[in-house]
């Protein structure tokens, strides 16, 4: 069974219009794999039949968009960014925020929440006593956000990169799934947000994880997102992109610092900063 060119064109237009995500020719297999379960559920004979229904059914469209925007996620995905979080970003921000003893973090395009909760685990282990932290987890998909709020993961998902010591410390069994502890859930707040549209009112973030999502957008949208990111990352804060996204043209808005093989981005100061007053 293969998706017909007109069906594929319709789906990629829909995804592009609603989420600015690109499904270029060659990604037919991906669209098929993600829509086939929905087609079965809707009682359609094949994916083309389902796409015919999508053309007139906004409810199914929303479901299809949810399915198309799902990313496979592991805990502590790629490892190195989390090392950089613990070794560089967290100590720097703890030093810089001693007056408020609070950190504000954004997990953008959070998918099913493994990134947000991985960060929550590290904060639980490394944040000094008496400090608090809030992680905002956003995604375009409300289905994904509901999963983050539930904090429940299948056995197969639990195997993906989660150290066994963290599994036993932060999770308990819930039927065939595992559920994350209430303490970590309290650290994470969810909000629906489409990265390609103007941001709603957001707080200033000390650290933003925006990983493996820019690759789905065209160049103009990428630049626009990074420009808007610049407005919400604290002047002394950090932005972390996916490993394949660090060579993007970041114009003059961002400085890059390397930590091992991880690139950290910090807001560039266009004018010279006045000399810091110390001991005042």
């Amino acid at each position: 069974m293969t998706i017909s060119p007109p069906s594929f064109a319709f789906v990629s237009d829909l995804a592009r219009r609603e989420t600015a995500m690109l499904y270029d020719p060659g990604k037919e297999y991906l669209v098929e794999a993600r829509l086939l379960p929905l087609a079965r559920e809707a009682g359609c004979a094949d994916v083309d039949g389902y796409v015919a229904r999508l053309r007139t059914d906004p409810v199914e469209q929303a479901k299809a968009l949810d399915a198309l925007t799902i990313n496979e996620t592991s805990w502590f995905r790629d490892n190195a960014p989390y090392q950089a979080f613990t070794e560089v970003m967290l100590p720097a921000m703890v030093a810089a925020r001693s007056h408020v003893r609070h950190l504000s973090i954004w997990s953008a395009a959070c998918s099913s929440g493994q990134e947000a909760y991985s960060l929550a685990m590290l904060l639980d282990q490394h944040l000094p006593a008496g400090w608090t932290a809030q992680i905002l987890a956003t995604d375009v998909s409300t289905t994904m956000l509901a999963r983050v709020d539930a904090g429940r993961y299948s056995q197969v998902e639990m195997n993906r990169g989660l150290p066994a010591t963290s599994l036993v410390k932060y999770f308990s069994r819930a039927g065939s799934e595992w559920e994350i502890s209430e303490d970590l859930k309290r650290m994470v707040r969810t909000q629906q947000l489409n990265l390609s549209a103007p941001f709603p009112l957001l707080p200033t973030f000390d650290i933003v994880f925006l990983r493996n999502v820019l690759i789905y957008f065209d160049l103009e949208t990428k630049r626009d997102i990074l420009r808007r990111m610049r407005q919400v990352v604290a002047p002394d804060g950090f932005l972390l992109l996916g490993s394949s996204e660090t060579t993007l043209d970041l114009e003059d808005d961002w400085n890059r610092e390397a930590h091992g093989r991880t690139q950290l981005h910090r807001p560039a100061t266009t004018t010279l900063q006045p000399i810091a007053l110390t001991g005042a």
């Binding site: 794999a33 299948s154 056995q155 197969v156 039927g175 065939s176 799934e177």
Partner: peptide
């Protein structure tokens, strides 16, 4: 166990080792 949970367990075993 509930049928839903058993279904999920069986789906995972099947999906993982016998091809999606």
């Amino acid at each position: 166990p509930s049928l839903t949970d058993v279904q999920m367990v069986v789906d995972e075993v099947w999906g993982t080792f016998l091809g999606t």
